[in-house]
Write a protein that binds this DNA or RNA. Structure first.
Ligand SMILES: NC(=O)c1ccc[n+]([C@@H]2O[C@H](COP(=O)([O-])OP(=O)(O)OC[C@H]3O[C@@H](n4cnc5c(N)ncnc54)[C@H](O)[C@@H]3O)[C@@H](O)[C@H]2O)c1
Ligand SMILES: NC(=O)c1ccc[n+]([C@@H]2O[C@H](COP(=O)([O-])OP(=O)(O)OC[C@H]3O[C@@H](n4cnc5c(N)ncnc54)[C@H](O)[C@@H]3O)[C@@H](O)[C@H]2O)c1
Lengths: 203, 203
DNA sequence: CCCCCATTGTGAAATAGTTCACAATGCGGA
DNA sequence: TCCGCATTGTGAACTATTTCACAATGGGGG
């Protein structure tokens, strides 16, 4: 498969959200573009990397395109997700329904702090992080969310990688080192605020 | 000023974080690159858009480069930030110290829910969102964080824009329409998980 | 049955971003 | 003082992404 850019994948994800809300049976690239804040040529180009799903003169069948994009993104299967770090951010994430709706199921929560271990969070008992490796050996997980302080993030990630986790969503504001077969996405909110600061300073 | 790419600004922000932690008095582009996960040429190119801050043969003075980047990003001043939406995500954000450390001060919290209005959050009383416009007229704010459900986000943003807010950090998973002089950054975590899903599905 | 038209799919052109490669240069040591 | 060397700053080359523009075509109406 030829290399598809990250921006294309992100846009597919945006199109998918609108397709799931669409009420008409078909939709044109122009309409999808308007909703997703891009251009119709961009929509068609993005889709063209994966095949040709539309009908000329008509547009795209909403149910079919929905299915195709879900398939491209690998969303037809569900994912087991473990969360490490039962702090404030972890708490917000565990209770968030948007993830589950899209097929990402948080199946375990780990922390280091004895005051948190054993407490029940949204139906899950917070486990001691020392069980991370043995638990993952029993019940493997493809995806982990890291919501520990920055200092522990790399150490936690090393342990996750050794336990076979192949994709990590990281909330700690540090770049993480992982082997090339592991994918990391870091959500760095302070950095987003700083790009806003830059745009305020330069107008 | 010529157009600087978003990726350059984000990298500057990453370099800044390492400069603030550096212990040696100087640092080379190669070292910054290693820490920030990029290349030395990229570091030098990024900086060259704004001037020449290094010494050939030596590298960059850590305190000077720190100051320069803070200045470029507009971080020398502090920012007043209002938060709209006192839910789980809003709660995590209010308590987060990382923002304040970098000069972003949450000065007011708004919600619609009468059960939340009046409660004290980290020293701030949650206010009824109906006061948003009058409060902002009295105490303007450059930056707002939107952490309401997706359905209300556009409406809240319209009100913020009318009240003179010029930069918005949005956590609701919808693209927002704003006039061209207002900058919006959307943090879309479900979308990040979906890019991870794509990478798991395609290996 | 055939024409019209909206809209796709896609090479080619344009633009944006990254990497290369090397001359310029400041510093430390002889 | 002068040499050697590490490292910057930057055009130029390269690579990636977006936009353009138009031929191809499916469907609906006459
Ligand atoms: N709260 C926010 O709004 C926010 C915003 C941006 C970024 N972040 C980042 O998200 C991360 C978590 O933030 P938070 O506010 O939830 O912090 P927090 O201190 O509330 O929670 C961190 C949790 O991680 C646990 N922990 C520490 N070391 C651990 C380890 N080795 N293994 C397992 N658990 C461990 C702690 O016991 C704690 O419960 C931090 O890196 C922070 O910088 C948070
Ligand atoms: N919690 C998470 O981990 C998470 C993750 C990703 C995205 N998000 C997004 O962040 C946003 C907030 O999520 P949450 O989990 O905190 O939801 P939440 O329901 O806990 O909180 C939302 C808050 O917004 C308030 N609100 C609703 N309409 C309002 C209005 N018009 N003006 C002011 N306040 C209003 C509600 O009263 C509530 O207190 C949502 O858009 C959600 O999709 C949350």
């Amino acid at each position: 498969m030829r290399k598809i850019s990250d921006s294309t994948i992100r846009r597919l994800s945006v199109y998918l959200r609108f397709l799931e809300q669409a009420k008409s049976p078909t939709i044109s690239s122009g309409e999808l573009a308007r909703l997703g804040g891009t251009t119709s040529a961009q929509v068609r180009k993005d889709l063209s990397f994966f095949g040709s799903f539309g009908k000329r003169g008509l547009g795209y069948s909403v149910p079919e395109l929905t299915r195709r994009i879900r398939d491209i993104l690998g969303l037809e299967r569900g994912y087991r997700v473990v969360l490490v770090g039962a702090g404030r951010m972890g708490g917000a994430l565990v209770q968030y329904h948007g993830f589950r709706q899209r097929g990402f199921h948080i199946t375990a929560i780990y922390d280091q702090d004895s005051r948190k271990i054993g407490s029940r969070w949204n139906g899950l008992v917070v486990r001691d992080v020392k069980h991370l490796e043995t638990d993952l050996k029993k019940d493997p997980s493809d995806i982990a969310i890291v919501a520990t302080p920055a200092e522990s993030a790399q150490h936690v990630v090393d342990r996750l990688v050794r336990s076979g986790v192949k994709a990590i969503l990281n909330f700690a504001p540090v770049p993480l080192n992982v082997p090339p077969d592991v994918e990391v996405k870091t959500v760095n909110m302070a950095l987003e605020l700083e790009t806003l600061s830059y745009s305020l300073a330069n107008r």
